[in-house]
Design a protein around this nucleic acid. Sequence first.
RNA 1: GGGACGUUAGCUCAGGCGGUAGAGCAGCGGACUUUUAAUCCGUUGGUCGCGGGUUCGAUUCCCGCACGUCCCA
Length: 495
Amino acid sequence: MEQTENELIRLRRQKIRSLREEGIDPYPNDVRVGHTTGEIIERYGALDGEALGAVQEEFSIAGRMMAVRDFGKGAFIMVQDRKGRLQAFLRQNVLGEEAFRLFKRLDVGDIVFVAGRIFRTRTGELTIDASRFRLLSKAVRPLPEKWHGLTDVETRYRQRHLDLISNPRVVEIFKKRSRIISLIRRFMEERDFLEVETPMMQPKAGGAAARPFRTHHNALDMDLYLRIAPELYLKRLVTGGLERVFEINRNFRNEGVSTFHNPEFTMMEFYQAYATYEDLMVMTEELFAFLAREVLGTTELTYQGQTIDLTPPWRRLTVAEAVERFWGLDAETIADGEALIDFARRQGLEVPEGEGPGKVLMTLFEAREDRLVQPTFVTQYPLEVSPLARKNPADPRFTDRFELYICGREIANAFSELNDPEDQRQRFLMQLEERARGDEEAHEMDEDYIRVLEYAMPPTAGEGIGIDRLVMLFTDSPSIRDVILFPHLRRKEEG
RNA sequence: GGGACGUUAGCUCAGGCGGUAGAGCAGCGGACUUUUAAUCCGUUGGUCGCGGGUUCGAUUCCCGCACGUCCCA
């Protein structure tokens, strides 16, 4: 703990001591709270002073004292609870001298209880006329300033409780996040999907192209990886006959941190037997439109000044078509691997020796993917970057896969699943070659998973949707840290 | 990984081309029983992110580091 104590804190500790000496518990837990500020405002917010005068009921609320306007023998305070804020009027003659004297020693930031009848003040504000007042929890540390609130982003993330206390907009974002996840569950359950939980600690980190976090199980003396995706486990469940499953949970990727990347992030991944990636495109459109209508009341939204129209159907482009548009290339150049590599290098893009045409195509795509602002399904990803996806029957160099782009960012990734165990083995072998060439994100050989496919997995399609990015979109948040309560930050010594 | 910018009171911010710093809010003392950032009078509070260098003297100049923000890879 800190050695030199701030004057403000010292004084408040002194207050707590003197309260205790007088037999007042600064941290009691014997109070029954009857109402929230929100329900009182909802029921009586529209009534005029005369109508409120006829309301005999006494109301009780509890919450954080966010403002004090003191007039000597009377005072207005603002009480904030989970539903909002309500004003209370404390008067010495109504409250009694003892309770009023206690109030006089309290500070903004303390948790208090107020009970009394409601009325409307001269300026028209709905207010509790306090007949009872109690301290429920004494604050030692002062709150951020009331007018500007807390703006320092570092403190906002490191001390999220302060952010939540002083920035109502932040509370709204996380309420909306909770609502979105709840709606996703409802959407999936209505389509007969079963919610499941699969391992976060895996002996092999499979199911995606990413570097994992490593950990160790002491008793079993074995290395484990935090999962980069639940994919291979969910497909075991489909093989096991569950047919429609989904999981909303965390993935961990050992990568850089940015406004769109947090090392742990939330993904909704789902698998549907007897469906194709084309079915999932329709389902994705329906899900997003459903969420938008429920959360925003419309299928149009504004993200960082751009208007995004989520009304289905959405544009569909193959990767090759997208690259044609982005770079003004023709189909012949795209089909010619050598010409494509040559073009990419002339554009200043880095293409390692021996790189295949599929990866070069992806390099060109990714260099300009930020141009996909309106919702777009990008389909037909090259085989070499899609080791778990089914080949396109018409052109086996590509897979029946799509990624959803909105505002230039990947929001979802889906494909018709590869369920041919022989083909899967070949794909893993291809990945091992990539790994040998230095690609640390290439998939490992997974014999155990191939063995699962050998028991026959039904034809299936699966998809992962990045929940954090989705919430960013629906809350117009510029950074992923705005939608994660405790985003990853470097460690800092506490002073 | 590279670049730019930032870090000053509990909070929001000024400031200083080198002589150890200010405001508003909060706090403390006082007045005030219908305020809305209440008002009025008085007042306390700082290792100027950390470490080193230059200097008689560094919060200010230089170097390094930490943390953060944005941009680029």
